[in-house]
């Protein structure tokens, strides 16, 4: 058993899954009849898409599940080659177990390129005799229509407060941790209904102390969200371009942030600056342009600098 709680406390059966009741019921029905359509799971991170897929495989294939289940992560392997090679190779061979088909689980499908999605569509058709696909994504709008039309689409919602708290309480009991109502609240707030995040926050707190206090939680959280980006903006607004960009480079290197990470944060922080709202909108507009150029261009830092230069004039 893994010591990483995300794994250690991952549900193994339908009954153990908290939240997403309706979806779980429907899927359970499919599995009982041993008849599964292609599935598309859409929804934010940490709400049970991967867990449910794993449960399906375990319930369908029993101990043998690993041989009948291919898990691929599209955000790490998102080219057309993956679809052409790995997926096809696995789909081509017959299932060995009692189940009449195998399952290919493609996580984070929204990061598959268009080419790859086109290739996937053909593969889904060609091998649908012996293979079922479960696709998961954050935004179903990024999945091409022909694929959506081949799947049953299920929309997952962030977990409700009760579900998250139940999970946290359960883990605290097992791990002999002390937690009070306020800290429970804090974990939920911080997680925003993302169970993976809740577990990770809890485990990092627990690695520091057996008593999970509110302060501890916020301490752990703040380590994860560099405040320094705001300092960069302040320097820029105060017309110190050179210092602002030195700070920017320092922050990016220290936390290993990509240009996109930074621009996302800048775009959020603009609203907290002490300037007129009209100017904020102008800056957001500039943000959008720079983010676009960043995607098109090759030097992220240069693009950020061109954004910072605009702040100096505010």
């Amino acid at each position: 058993m893994s010591k990483i709680w995300v794994e250690k406390y991952r549900p193994q059966k339908f009954e153990e899954i908290k939240g997403q009741d309706k979806i779980v019921d429907r899927i359970k029905g499919f599995v009982e009849k041993k008849n599964l359509p292609h599935l598309l799971f859409a929804g934010p991170a940490g709400v049970g898409k991967t867990t449910l897929s794993l449960v399906i495989a375990k319930e369908l294939f029993g101990n043998d599940w690993k041989n009948c289940f291919l898990e691929l992560n599209a955000s790490d392997e998102r080219g057309i080659d993956v679809i052409r090679n790995k997926v096809k190779d696995f789909a081509r061979t017959k299932a060995m177990s009692n189940a009449p088909f195998k399952i290919i689980y493609l996580d984070e499908c929204d990061s598959l390129t268009r080419d790859a999605q086109q290739a996937l569509r053909r593969t889904m058709e060609t091998y649908s005799d012996g293979t079922r696909f479960i696709l998961s994504c954050n935004y179903s709008s990024k999945i091409i229509d022909p694929i959506q039309s081949r799947c049953n689409v299920f929309r997952f919602k962030p977990l409700e407060r009760e579900a998250i708290e139940e999970i946290i309480k359960f883990i605290c009991e097992k791990e002999k941790l002390k937690i009070n109502k306020k800290s429970l609240d804090a974990v939920y707030e911080v997680s925003g209904g993302d169970c993976r995040k809740a577990k990770n926050v809890l485990q990092s707190c627990a690695s520091v102390s057996d008593e999970i206090t509110e302060e501890l939680i916020y301490e752990v959280i703040s380590a994860a969200k560099p405040k320094e980006v705001i300092d960069v903006l302040r320097l820029a607004v105060n017309k110190d371009f050179i210092k602002a960009r030195d700070k920017l480079l320092e922050v990016m290197l220290k936390h290993g942030l990509s240009g996109l990470d930074v621009i996302k944060q800048i775009q959020k922080e603009i609203w907290n600056l002490e300037i007129a709202d009209e100017k904020k909108v102008r800056l957001i507009e500039k943000c959008g342009e720079v983010e676009f150029r960043m995607v098109e261009g090759s030097n992220e830092f240069l693009q950020l600098e061109s954004l910072l230069a605009g702040f100096v004039l505010i």
Partner: peptide, 15 residues
């Protein structure tokens, strides 16, 4: 180990 992409793991790396 955790059925999660590297990208997401990096996103929660501080924890």
């Amino acid at each position: 180990k955790t059925h999660t992409s590297k990208k997401k793991t990096l996103g929660e790396f501080t924890y």
